[in-house]
Amino acid sequence: MKKIIYMLCFLFILQMVQPYSIYASSKQLVAIGDSIPYGYNLSKDNQYPSGKAFPYMVGEKAGLEVTNLGVPGLTSQELVAAVHENEVFRSTIRDADYVVLYIGGNDLLNLLKKHKGIKGIEMDEVAIVVRNLLFNVYSTVMELDKLTNGQILVYNIYNPYPEKGKSLSQPLHYINVQYSSLIELLSHFTEVKLVDAYQAFKGHPEYILENDVHPTVEGQIVLANIGLKEIKE
Rank of each mutant, 00 (worst) to 15 (best):
P19A: 06
Q151V: 00
P72Q: 06
Q151M: 08
N106M: 13
E60C: 00
Y98E: 13
S187A: 06
G120Y: 12
L101V: 15
C9V: 02
P72H: 04
E206F: 01
F10Y: 14
P215A: 02
L14Q: 12
F10L: 10
E125T: 08
T92P: 02
R131W: 01
G70M: 08
K27D: 12
V217M: 05
L8I: 03
P49V: 00
A62K: 03
G63H: 02
P205D: 02
V71W: 01
A200E: 04
K166E: 15
A224E: 12
K119W: 07
S91Y: 07
Y48L: 15
A96H: 08
Y174Q: 05
A31R: 04
G73V: 02
V17A: 14
G73Y: 01
I128M: 12
K166T: 00
Q18L: 13
K27P: 10
I157K: 08
K229N: 14
M1C: 10
K166N: 06
M57A: 11
V58P: 06
I103N: 07
Y138K: 10
A31C: 09
Y38R: 01
K113E: 12
L185P: 01
T190Y: 00
V213M: 14
E191H: 09
Y174A: 14
V129F: 08
K116R: 11
E218C: 08
I226L: 13
E163I: 09
K229Y: 13
E87H: 11
M16K: 15
G203N: 04
Y158E: 09
S167T: 08
L79H: 06
N41L: 08
C9P: 00
T75Q: 15
K44Q: 12
P72A: 02
V83A: 08
L223F: 03
Y138T: 14
I183M: 01
I152H: 08
V80Q: 05
V130W: 01
N110F: 08
V58D: 06
L185Y: 05
Q199D: 09
Y174S: 10
I128D: 14
I5N: 07
Y179G: 05
A81T: 06
L8S: 09
V66R: 00
F12K: 09
G227F: 03
V213G: 11
A31W: 08
I175H: 03
L194V: 04
I175N: 03
V83K: 05
M16N: 15
I221R: 11
N106Q: 14
P19L: 04
Y20G: 11
K202Y: 07
S43D: 15
K2R: 11
P162K: 00
M1H: 09
Q28I: 13
V71D: 07
F189D: 13
Y155Q: 13
P215G: 06
I208T: 06
E122I: 03
L209C: 01
I157P: 15
T148F: 04
I221G: 11
K27A: 09
L168C: 07
D196N: 14
H214N: 14
A81K: 03
K202Q: 11
M142V: 05
L144E: 05
Y138M: 13
V30I: 15
K119V: 09
S187L: 00
P37R: 00
S76Q: 02
S26G: 02
